[in-house]
Write a protein that binds this DNA or RNA. Structure first.
Length: 307
DNA sequence: GGCCCTCTTTAGGGCCTT
């Protein structure tokens, strides 16, 4: 039995366990040859200040532009982390010593906040991602300027005033920052596997439409995994399939001690990291099996967004 | 809007995401 054990940056102690490595799908199968190496994330993007006509520099350094772009955000309390550590079955630190693992993909857990549910009519206003491998700069989040009123601030607490500002990057300005982040995390010869809850019908189509609006193409070697259909395979104590597979239900099921505000992107990303760990352990899912369940942008049916 | 389930498949309703 070969285990893939990953470490994320949640206090450097969280782990994810995948049982039974018997891949029928290899990195080479899912990734076109690339020569990326893991690099420090130091994206610098010139963004024109629409109001002042000047140029500003964005990077992933902490607390830039009024906190709109941040890294390494801690959401869970240390006491809660100790509780979670006690639930682990092994010591992840040993398995990732040397900073290398045999995991066949770079796993990026992500979440977005939007102005609503319509992929065509609404826009992304916040993006957060966490590389399960952890380490320095493993997290990344930013507000995004939708250039329109935010009418659902009651849901996530993100107001029009917070995002419709010249110092908040528009999505087109965010894309090169995102690509630089991914580039800094991607391991040579291995694919990037994006993970989101209900990603196939929400997060990923939103990303696709935003890229289309900006006339940009998403990298062909990006794969996506939706945890919602996976979670729907869970059964309750009576052996019946669970009636709800929402994030709220899963957080309660696994007794994940969340802190902070739900429906903020990084909060939900951190919760999903724990859910993914518990989910894959309970269903005995390996990373190769997750890769087999993954889909590509080309698998999503889309029509051009309305302008 | 896509997916899943059932009282179904020539359909309808609920879930899930903000």
């Amino acid at each position: 039995m070969l285990r893939h054990q990953l470490r994320n940056s949640i206090g450097h102690i969280c782990s994810i366990r995948f049982l039974k490595y018997h891949s029928t799908i290899s990195s080479e199968n899912v990734l076109q040859n690339r020569r990326h190496k893991t690099r420090p994330f130091s994206a610098t993007v010139l963004v024109r200040n629409a109001r002042k006509g000047s140029k500003q520099s964005f990077s992933n350094d902490r607390h830039l532009h009024g906190g709109s772009v941040e890294s390494s955000i801690e959401v869970f309390k240390q006491s809660d982390l100790q509780h979670l550590k006690s639930l682990q079955c092994y010591d992840i630190q040993e398995k990732v010593s040397g900073g290398k693992t045999d995991c066949p993909a770079t796993i990026l857990v992500f979440d977005i906040e939007t102005t609503g549910f319509s992929r065509r009519g609404d826009r992304i206003i916040e993006f957060a991602v966490r590389d399960l491998m952890g380490g320095k700069n493993s997290t990344f989040q930013t507000l995004i300027n939708p250039e329109r009123e935010v009418k659902n601030a009651a849901v996530h607490g993100i107001s029009t005033k917070m995002v419709c500002s010249s110092d908040i990057p528009r999505f087109g300005e965010f894309i090169p920052i995102l690509l630089q982040y991914v580039w800094s995390r991607q391991v040579a010869g291995k694919p990037v596997m994006w993970v989101a809850h209900n990603g196939k019908t929400f997060d990923v189509p939103f990303l696709i439409f935003e890229f289309q609006r900006c006339k940009q193409e998403m990298p062909a070697d990006w794969l996506f995994v939706d945890t919602l259909p996976i979670a729907r395979q869970l059964v309750d104590s009576d052996g019946e399939k669970i009636s709800s597979a929402s994030m709220k239900t899963l957080v309660e099921r696994y007794k994940i001690p969340v802190d902070g505000k739900a429906h903020r992107a990084m909060h939900d990303v951190t919760a999903l990291c724990y859910v993914l760990q518990k989910l894959t352990f309970e269903l005995k899912l390996t990373v190769p099996q997750l890769l087999e369940k993954s889909f590509r942008v080309s698998d999503i049916t889309t029509t051009p967004p309305k302008k």
